[in-house]
Amino acid sequence: MSDLLWILLSAMVVNNFTLSLFLGLCPFLGVSGRVETALRMGLANIFVLVLTSLCAWALNTFVLVYAPFLRVISFIVVIASLVQIVEMAVKKFSPTLFRQLGIYLPLITTNCAILGLAIFQTNRGYGLFQGLAFAVGAGLGLTLALVLMASIRETTELSDVPDVTRGAGLVLIVAGTLSLAFMGFAGLLSGA
């Protein structure tokens, strides 16, 4: 249990997917201009991450043992189809949810956080539940980073940011500072 908790917290704050592993940077740097958008994007990500973790576990356990060299290909194919299926399913069963999450789902396919999760999970030899904890932690971490960045950007939009730093430069410095701040979580649950 403490192992699962550690995996979750590690992916969420200690080694935050975005701020420490640099996964999911595109939405982090690009899409996250509004808090509501960031929140929905994060939720969509959590959803897909959990499904991906399940699929990756299944693939690893039943298929890739025999053909490890197909790993990258099969992961990317599975993720792409997964997102397609989720998109169709959501559209069919919950048009409301689709309106809120729909536009983010295609963006997620090529979000490296998803493939990253599958590959990290494989490299670390996580089992089913460990993988799920990892996926939830990673998704929460992504969401946290997205929401923080979005709310900060809403504020800096109203600030007198110099032309030279306005845009990507400032966003990266903010990300760096966030990353510095998250270093405070280092060693969480390890000292006890």
């Binding site: 940077l25 595109c26 939405p27 740097l29 090529t110």
Partner: peptide
């Protein structure tokens, strides 16, 4: 990374 160019790009 996504294939969608990030809006912060020039």
């Amino acid at each position: 990374m996504t294939a969608h160019a990030s809006p912060i790009g020039p």
